[in-house]
Amino acid sequence: MWIVFGITAGLILGLYDFWTKKSMDGNDVISIVFFSSFFGMAAWGLVLTLGAGNTLSPVDLLNLGYEHQLLIAVKSMAMTLSWILAYYAVKALPMSFSGAVRASGPLWTMAGGVLIFGEYLTVTQFFLIFASIAAYYALSQIGKKEGIDALKSKPVMMMLAATIFSAATTVYDKYLVQSIGLTAASIQINSAIQRFLIALVIFYFYKKHLKIKTNTTWSLYIPLVGISWVVAEYVYFLAIVQADSNVTYLSVFRRMSLVLGFILSAIFIGEKYLKQKTIIILVLVLSTVALILERH
C-alpha cells in the first residue's frame, strides 16, 4: 500500500502545482499563502470534528508539550518560507520551469553527499547527472526565448531556495516521527495551525505596516491549493510511517508532480515550445528516477 500512497501523493502534488499557478491570476502571493494556510487548517479541523472520539481525537493530537510544539514550529516556519518563495516563482515562471526546478531536489542531495561527505560517483551516476544538467541547460536556452535568463532570474533562484527548504522539511519529518516519536497526525494538525498563525502575522504586517493593498480575486483554486497540500501531505505520511516503506522510492514517486503539472499547464494554460519542453521534461524525469534507483 505504501507504493500506492506514494504515487497518489505525487499526483496530488501535481494538481497542487497547477492550482497554485491558477490561483495567482490577479492575486498577490502573500494573500494566497494566507488563504491557502487557512483552508489547510480548516480541512484538518473538519477531519478532527468527524474523527472526534476515535484515534483522531483532538485531545490526543493537540495536547503536546511546549518542547514538541517548538520542534514542529521549526517545520512550520520552514514550510511557510518555502511556500512564499515557491509561490513568487510559480506566479512569474511557466510551469515547465518552476516544476523542473522543484524536481531537482535529488540532484542537490547527491551533490551534498559528494561535497560534504566525499562520496564517489559511479560512471552511471556521473552520466545521469550529466544528462540532467544538459536537460536543465536545454531548458534554460528555451527560457531565453521566453525572456527568462535562468542564471539571473530571481524567480528561478526563489524556486531553488524553496526546493531546498522543502527537502529539508522532508528529512525533518522523518526525524520527528522516528527519533522524537511524534505521530504523523499530531505533526500535521499542529503544523497546519502554526502555519496559519505564521501566515496571519505575515499577512497583517504586509497590509498594515507595509500598507500594501490586497484585493483578492476569489476563485475555487484558492481553497483547492490549501486543501490539496494537506491531502498530499497526509497521504505521503500514510506511506512513510509504514515499516516496509522505502523513502528512496517515495522520492521517485513525488517526481510525478512535475509530469502531471506540465500536462495540465500544456492543456489549460498554454505552454510555449511544447514539443521541446516535453522531451526535456522526459529526460529530467527519467534521469532523476534512474539516478535515485541506481544510487539505492
Rank of each mutant, 00 (worst) to 15 (best):
W44C: 03
L182K: 02
I129C: 06
G143I: 01
D173G: 05
A43S: 14
K75Q: 13
E146Q: 13
V29E: 00
A135F: 07
Y136D: 01
F130L: 10
L250T: 07
G65K: 05
S132N: 10
M41V: 05
K213N: 15
T80P: 05
T163S: 03
A103C: 10
K174N: 05
A239H: 01
S287K: 01
V101N: 00
T217P: 08
Y236E: 06
W229H: 11
V171K: 09
D60C: 06
F126R: 03
K211L: 12
T20A: 15
K21I: 01
S179A: 12
I187V: 14
M158I: 01
G65Q: 08
F34K: 10
A131Q: 04
G226W: 00
V156R: 01
L56G: 06
A266D: 04
E67M: 15
P58G: 07
F38G: 07
V225T: 12
W108T: 02
K213L: 14
I12Y: 00
L13R: 06
V225F: 00
F39K: 03
A192W: 02
S96T: 09
V101D: 02
L264E: 08
L139N: 08
A150E: 05
V252P: 00
G26K: 12
P106G: 02
E233W: 07
L13K: 02
M158V: 04
F126C: 08
M79K: 07
A134S: 12
S251W: 05
I227L: 06
S31T: 08
I263N: 03
V74P: 00
V177G: 05
R254N: 08
A138H: 06
A266N: 10
L274A: 00
K75F: 15
N63Y: 05
T170F: 07
K154Y: 11
A184M: 13
M1D: 11
S37N: 11
V4R: 06
I84T: 15
F38V: 07
L286F: 08
G26I: 10
T183F: 04
G53V: 11
L15N: 06
S251E: 12
G65E: 08
I240H: 02
S96V: 09
Q194E: 13
A243R: 12
N246M: 13
D60S: 13
F18H: 02
I116T: 14
S82H: 08
A290H: 06
G112T: 09
